[in-house]
Each structure stands twice: as C-alpha cells, then as structure tokens.
Amino acid sequence: MHDLGAGFGYLVKGQRWVARHGRQYGRSLLPGLITLVLYAAALICLALWGGDLVTWATPFADPWTSPWQGLFRGFLTAVLFALALLLAVLTFTAVTLLIGQPFYESLSERVDIAEDGHAPESGLPLWRDLWISAVDSVRVLIRAALWGLLLFALGFLPFVGQTVVPAVGFLVTGFFLTEELTAIALQRRGLDLRTRLTLLRSRRGLAWGFGTPLALAFLVPFVAVFLMPGAVAGATLLARDLDGPGEPRPDRADEARTGTPA
C-alpha cells in the first residue's frame, strides 16, 4: 500500500514540477497534440465504419432473424471499439514519446539537474538512442498487445468479464505506461528493457500507483496531452527512486564505443 501511495505521489509531483516551469511545459505539449490528432482521426473512422467492418467479418450472421443479428453485431462493434480504445491508451504514450523524444529527453534531464545538479547521460549518439527507444517501444507494445488479447478473451466470461477483467486491464495498462515513461530516465542510466522490467516488477505497487491513475485520466479526451509533460517529469522522479541518481552503466558506455549492443 505504501508503494501505491508513493507512485501516485510521483505523478502529482511531476505535474507540480512542470507547473513551475511554464516554458518547458509549453514546448512539451506539441508531441502530445500531434499524437492526439492522429488517434482521434483513427477512432472517429472506427466509430463511423466499425459496424460495416463487423458486418463484413460476420457473413454467417446474415440469415439470423431480428433481434439476434443486431444484438450480436452490435455487441461485437462495441467490443471492437473498446479494444481499440484500450490499445490507444496502451500505445499513446509510446507513440508520443517516440515523436517527442528530444523534447522529453530535455525535460527529463532538467528534472534530474533540478534534483541534484547532475543528469546522467547514456553516452550514445542521438540517432542510436532513438533507435533503441523505438525497438524497446515495439517490444513493450507486443507484450501489451498479448495482454490485451488475453483480457479480451476473458471478457466473455460471465460476471468476471464485466468486473475483474476491466480492473486487471487498467492495472496492466498502468504498469506498461509506467515502463514507457520511466524508460527515458532509466535508458540514460544505461538500463536495458529487461532490467527496467525487472525493476518495475519488484515494485509493482509503485508502478500501479503511478500508471493506473494516469491510464484512467488518459480516457478523458485531451487530458493525456496536458498530463504528458508532468507524467514525464514524475516518471523521472520515480526512476530516481528505482535506480537512484546513478551514472551510465559500463555496458552502455561500451556499446557507445563499439556501436553494438553489449
């Protein structure tokens, strides 16, 4: 329970930090706005033509009589949109971070410097940092998608699918949101994806306390855009709790020199 409260506390502290640094906050809004427009367009298209897609995918239901055909296809359309919304929440952070990597990297460094006057550096050129971030994001999204498919299947279970599964879904979403957001600060400290996941699994309460309220907030239109800069700042503070101010790992320094993963 202590870690749950601490995780939420880092989320609040991050919002307070960007509120005190208006210029940094304003610059960091741009990537979220771009991503929001792209996702909104995709969800609007799904809302308009999702029913047609379900009809095309279920030709076996054509001979069914009313109201069963309408109920069946209406249910599938609602489930399809709900799954798309869940995937949007899961992927929004990764896509926004990828688009806004230079902005959020600068913000994270400023938070570290404000804390103790020092910001760890990965020792890698920018293009390689971007490449590692993109590859790690894809790997995280694959994990999140597998969880999403499992929860989608369990959603058909009576009672459990309408109560337990949504709650577990938000916890899973919160965990992966925390991983994506802390990756900026932890990657600068030389931690690869496997190590970051191990750290977060050892402090699941911290990850859930930070990421789950954020996942719930991201369901409200436009909120994700305005919370993202503060979420990055808070995730940097949380990363310091997980790994400390730290220095880049020797293996990451070796990677910078050789150009190959350690």
Rank of each mutant, 00 (worst) to 15 (best):
D243M: 01
A42R: 02
F8Q: 01
V223M: 09
T91G: 14
F103E: 14
A57M: 07
A145V: 15
L46D: 11
L238R: 02
L214F: 15
P63E: 05
K13E: 15
R110N: 07
V54N: 07
A167W: 15
F152R: 07
G190S: 03
P125Q: 04
A82Y: 10
E105C: 03
G190H: 01
L85W: 14
V95C: 05
T198D: 13
D243V: 04
A145Y: 11
T55Q: 07
L227M: 13
Y104C: 06
T35R: 09
D251G: 13
R20W: 03
A41D: 08
L193E: 05
L71C: 11
T198E: 14
R188M: 01
A78Y: 14
L149S: 10
P31S: 03
F222Q: 08
V89K: 01
P67F: 10
D254V: 12
P213F: 05
T55A: 11
A19Q: 09
Q24N: 08
L193P: 04
C45N: 09
R257G: 04
Q101C: 05
A262R: 02
L237H: 01
L124K: 03
L33V: 13
G234P: 07
P261W: 09
V223I: 14
Y39C: 15
P221L: 04
W127S: 13
D192S: 03
R189A: 01
C45W: 13
R249D: 06
D136A: 03
P59W: 01
L71K: 06
A6T: 09
L171E: 11
R249M: 07
A224Q: 08
V223C: 06
A233T: 03
L4P: 11
A82D: 12
R143H: 15
E179P: 15
L107R: 03
G50I: 04
T163V: 15
V168T: 15
T77Q: 10
A145W: 11
R240M: 05
A84C: 06
D116M: 00
A231P: 11
